[in-house]
């Protein structure tokens, strides 16, 4: 079949004329799968914590529209005048975050089965939205059965990186100290006392801080058993994820899978928190430290059932007391929107 050059060129011209271009108050981002048309953000309501990522001085800087916790603006740790300082979000010289990136397309590492076989873990993945933009497929792991993808990988060549923006509130942590007395007597006395730790809260000089971390994991709270065994290490922070910042590369970026975001990449924030916050510990720190709890447990073995029952009653009472005591000695806080 012969196609005339003029006919072909006129088809190309028509295609070219059909491209959407950004006009007044409209933003257009070109992708292999289509042109993403968005309304210009300048005229719209801007919520607290709104991120604005800019490529400045060869690094990505993330500026945060001031959000508030208990009426206070959180700080960002930054170097100012040669010193490390906590700069508030409402400071006239706006602070910014300089994130490190994770690769959500790469395998999360290796795993081992009970049979001793090693296998590759699947990647973290990403929201479906980025498929439309042409981000390449995330590693499925060596155990996954590849699904049929009619679109194929050839057109999806963009890389993706991400980081999390986290609000951190230093707080008083507690741990339980278990003292066992009179171990050689027939009755054993156990004292459980509470130790307060506010070293982090005193060292950071800020009530609420914003940090950029490659991948955020919620602080692990100790279990009741950890507390009872005296092994509990309570986190010294309450934390909440504000947003994830996704960075999308141009098609086929230089460096491929090892590419790092530069000025040619485009930032897409995904928010977990839209509104200002309040924060309070569930319990107030007492003016007087809690009185240590003391338990006396009879250690009489090989006696009749009636004696066991007599012993079990105080043990159950003691158990309730321990639970009440342990629950009363955590100062974990909660966030809520206001």
């Amino acid at each position: 079949m012969t196609i005339k050059a003029t006919a072909w060129n006129s088809a190309v011209s028509r295609l070219r004329a059909g491209r959407p271009l950004g006009g007044c108050r409209v933003e257009v981002i070109g992708t292999p799968s289509g042109a993403l048309v968005s309304a210009d953000p300048s005229g719209r309501f801007e919520h607290p914590w709104k991120l604005s990522a800019r490529w400045q001085q060869e690094q990505w800087r993330v500026f945060v529209r001031p959000g508030f916790v208990n009426g206070l603006d959180p700080t960002i740790p930054m170097e100012r005048d040669g010193e490390q300082k906590e700069i508030g979000l409402t400071d006239p010289d706006r602070p910014y975050l300089t994130p490190g990136w994770r690769n959500p397309l790469a395998s999360r590492g290796m795993g081992a089965s009970l049979a001793g076989d090693l296998f590759e873990l699947p990647a973290e993945g990403y929201p479906k939205f980025f498929e439309t933009l042409g981000v390449r497929k995330a590693a499925a792991g060596s155990r996954a059965v590849e699904a049929y993808d009619p679109q194929g990988d050839s057109e999806r060549t963009r890389e993706l990186r991400a980081c999390d923006i986290v609000l951190v509130t230093p707080r008083v942590a507690t741990n339980q100290q278990v003292d066992i007395h009179d171990p050689f007597s027939e009755a054993q006395t156990v004292t459980i006392s509470t130790v307060f730790n506010d070293s982090y809260a005193r060292s950071v000089e800020s009530k609420h801080r914003l940090l950029a971390v490659a991948k955020w994991e919620p602080p692990r709270e100790p279990t009741a058993m950890d507390r009872l065994m005296g092994q509990a290490v309570e986190p010294q922070t309450d934390e909440i994820k504000i947003a994830t910042l996704w960075m999308v590369s141009p098609p086929n970026p230089e460096g491929g899978e090892e590419a790092q975001p530069d000025g040619t990449w485009v930032a897409f924030p995904q928010y977990d928190v839209f509104w200002n916050l309040a924060h309070a510990p569930r319990r107030q720190i007492p003016a007087v430290p809690p009185k240590p709890i003391t338990l006396r447990t009879g250690l009489i073995g090989g006696m009749a059932d009636s004696i066991f029952n007599a012993i079990l009653a105080p043990i159950n009472d003691a158990n309730s007391k321990v639970h009440a005591f342990l629950n009363a000695t955590t100062f974990k806080g909660e966030y809520w929107t206001v």
């Binding site: 295609l15 292999p32 042109a35 953000p41 719209r44």
Partner: peptide, 24 residues
């Protein structure tokens, strides 16, 4: 009109599709 050229044309047509972004 080679296969490569035809595929480029198809990719160009695909990239002209309009996708709805924020506020659109």
């Amino acid at each position: 009109i080679t296969a490569a050229l035809w595929n480029k044309m198809a990719a160009a047509a695909r990239s002209c599709r309009i996708l709805a972004g924020d506020g659109v």
